[in-house]
Every structure is written in C-alpha cells, then in structure tokens.
C-alpha cells in the first residue's frame, strides 16, 4: 500500500493541490472594531436624512454623494464610501450597521435627547400637517397636536411644515434635567445587566 500522503497526492483533489499555487490559507480574522460598508435596515429606517447630512463624501458634478436619500430610502454607493462609520453613529433609530463597530455603538447606553419638541396649544390650529411629515409617527392630532418624546428623532420637519410660526418649538433640555435622566438610564441599564 502507498503511504497516505502519496495516495492523497495521486487522487484528483490532491494532484490539483500539488499543482495549484492557490492553496487555502488562513487569513486573519477581521478586527473586532472593524468598520465595513454600511448596511441599512430599511424596515427600521425613518428616512430622516441624518446619515446623509453627516456623510463626509459630498456630491460633485458627475458623482453622487456616498449616501444618497432617494424615494426608496437611503442608498449607499459603495465606490464612494470611505467606511468612516459616521452614519451609524448619528442614526437616531439604529438602522445602520457598519461591521463590528455597530456593536460598540449599541453597547453604550443611548443618551437622552438634548432637546425636545413642544407644541404651543394656544397657537396650534390642528391642521395635521406635522403628522403627515413626521418620519417616525411621533405626532398625534386631536384638537391640537401632541408629540411623543420617546419616538421623536428631532428632525425638525414638523417645524418646517407648520403653517403657524412659533406653534411648534424645539427647546434645548436643561442641563440638570439632562443629568438626572442620565442617572436614571444608568440605573436602568445596571438593573437590566443584573437581571
């Protein structure tokens, strides 16, 4: 009997390996914080346009920007993308994934919002335009409009759409209130981690 390695060479597969320089070799795993091309989850996307605003690769005369907002939602042009990962950092709903960095971003506790949108009930006429333009369905209109602060992504589209000047305002949050909220979120996160 031939030794194992000889019979292995004489088989078709082994012979191919002998002649073939393209031997399989272990290429190192990707680093744990590697930023890949962004993948956008269109189901979660609210089409607010924050990613396109943050993208450092702008448009030129003949080329589109790396992240373009179209009718079907944001589209990544891979040949333009520089893999910086800014779009994932600014996305308010976490719909963009850029390789393993996304995990790092998600592991941080989502900070409380630095501002909130407030409706002045005396001025509001209840026309419902803000509800139509809101990308995240945060506004309900009965007599006057009401804003759900948890769902609001601070895109300010309602302010642009509102026909009455000053009826919808964006108010920066108080620093003390912000720090209180931070403490609450931290406690919650700790409780979740224990439980």
């Amino acid at each position: 009997m031939l030794p194992d390695y000889l019979s292995n060479i004489l088989t078709r597969k082994g012979g191919k390996r002998l002649l073939d320089a393209h031997s399989p070799r272990k290429i190192r795993d990707r680093p744990r914080r590697f930023r890949d091309f962004p993948i956008i989850d269109l189901d979660r996307c609210v089409n607010c346009g924050a990613c396109a605003d943050a993208c450092p690769v702008g448009e030129s005369d003949d080329q589109p920007p790396a992240l373009e907002i179209t009718d079907r939602g944001p589209v990544v042009h891979r040949e333009r993308c520089i893999r910086c990962g800014l779009c994932a950092e600014v996305c308010p709903v976490g719909a963009i994934e850029v390789g393993a960095l996304t995990r790092e971003v998600e592991e941080r506790i989502t900070p409380p919002k630095p501002a909130r949108v407030v409706v002045d009930e005396d001025l509001c006429v209840g026309c419902g335009r803000c509800r139509d333009v809101c990308p995240s369905d945060a506004i309900e209109v009965d007599d006057t409009a009401r804003v759900d602060p948890d769902r609001c992504v601070l895109c300010e589209r309602c302010i642009e759409a509102c026909p009455v000047a000053g009826a919808i305002k964006i108010i920066p949050m108080d620093v003390e209130e912000l720090s209180e909220r931070w403490a609450e979120r931290l406690k919650e996160a700790l409780r979740e981690a224990k439980g």
Partner: peptide, 21 residues
C-alpha cells in the same frame, strides 16, 4: 492599531473632546 481603533490606517480615531471608542 487595529486592535484599538478597528482600522489599519486612516483610523478616524479622534473627535473633539477625546476619542471615539
């Protein structure tokens, strides 16, 4: 460098006020 920042070169590691991660 890869272990810390995630990229080999062109790391995008600094932001105003500190570092990214």
């Amino acid at each position: 460098i890869e272990e810390i920042t995630g990229n080999r070169i062109l790391t995008g590691w600094n932001v105003v006020g500190g570092v990214r991660v």
